[in-house]
Design a protein around this nucleic acid. Structure first.
Lengths: 213, 213
DNA sequence: TTCGTTGGGGAGTGGCACTATCCAAGCATG
DNA sequence: CATGCTTGGATAGTGCCACTCCCCAACGAA
């Protein structure tokens, strides 16, 4: 298939596909002549993944490139490739160091990790960028005077622990060679699912309580 | 307090504060002389909220302005103000209309809503922007061949339903005049908490399964 | 009086995700 | 074989966003 057909079948403009090729998000097609190239189904699939990550998952283009290169890094085992890909995803800036709210956040999050048996040797833990994002968010809430200690965090942690089990069950059903891509796609694309369901649930619950009808 | 002190106590540069003033995210200070203004504690508090929404919650500046104006709209009741503020938050683009994946998404999400008793009259439901975001994400997953039907969505929906109850319990503890701000702050700032905990949980679970030690 | 400081305002910056234009080399048609 | 449309590569430009710089006139302390 030529670039124009790839564009039509994916719904992505040829200009944008050319941009992705330049940025290394897509392998170049097989050259037919000096000015033409041939693309296959795997290009279409990859393009759809790229589009989903960028548009639905809001992953920046440069980050997408890193994530994709981790997908194909044969020198790593499955867990490491998933880890590298997920760590490349965007995270909040680290919190200010000398700040009482940050101190509180560190303390509460540390207590949370004691109560769960999450293990830093598996990649969760203070060394992970997600841990930094968590600290930043907890510190910001603390600074604004909203409660955000272990007791408030635990229900969230328990909920996502359960969800991660069912999610990894899903990932495990895929054959080896598709598993890392599945893990990344599900990690990124279930984020908007989770957030929109949460907003819908909150809107509904807020209506139950604060609406007079 | 003068602008310089406001800057120091909030950790936001004077240039940025001036930018927020111009953008209407902050009320102008009380004018002392022709070239000086006085700011109070409520300016500091508002500034911290703005910073948290923009930096931690990744809410765009223009959206933040809309959210803040909904906070102070006395013509609406609490539920409506929360609703307006949350609807102003960023959402994914609506999915393509004439697409089998979108059709599938509509169908599955409709089935999901039948199983929960979420009510469109309360603001959740097809008319809500979050509903559109959900459709887009489900359609993208479907297009990539990942399972994303009622059975997969239900655990997520149940989890966030529970969380929304505890969260609204928290909101209800605040006095009336602080309640809407609390609802918005908690909605936005718990998003990174939820997402980072999910990534940590997944990393941990992936380690348990796919790591050889 | 002098000199640093203050707040307002307009213009500039850097990053990002495209997008428009140009060009030479095909291919298709009469 | 001539003509004109299409193709893919490269370069430069666009629009948006969140700041950030700079200048200015008015203050205020020494």
């Amino acid at each position: 298939m030529k670039l124009a057909e790839l564009s039509e079948r994916s719904g992505v403009s040829t200009a944008t596909i050319k941009y992705y090729l330049r940025e290394g998000l897509l392998q170049p097609g097989r050259r037919i002549t000096a000015t033409q190239a041939e693309y296959g189904e795997e290009h279409l699939r990859r393009l759809r993944l790229v589009r989903a990550l960028i548009q639905v998952g809001r992953v920046p283009v440069s980050t997408t490139r890193e994530v994709l290169s981790a997908l194909g890094d044969d020198s790593l085992d499955q867990h490491s490739r998933i880890g590298v890909a997920v760590q490349a995803l965007p995270h909040a800036p680290l919190p200010a160091e000398d700040d009482p709210a940050t101190e509180h956040a560190r303390h509460e999050v540390a207590k949370l990790f004691e109560r769960l048996d999450w293990d830093d040797s598996r990649g969760s833990g203070p060394s992970s960028p997600s841990y930094g994002t968590l600290l930043t968010a907890v510190a910001a809430l603390t600074r604004l005077g909203y409660p955000c200690g272990v007791e408030e965090l635990l229900p969230y942690a328990r909920a996502v622990s359960q969800l991660s089990v069912t999610e990894l069950d899903l990932v495990a059903r895929f054959p080896d060679e598709e598993r890392v891509e599945a893990a990344v796609a599900l990690t990124v694309l279930y984020e908007p699912v989770l957030l929109s369901l949460r907003r819908l649930a909150e809107t509904d619950e807020s209506g139950r309580r604060f609406m007079n009808t």
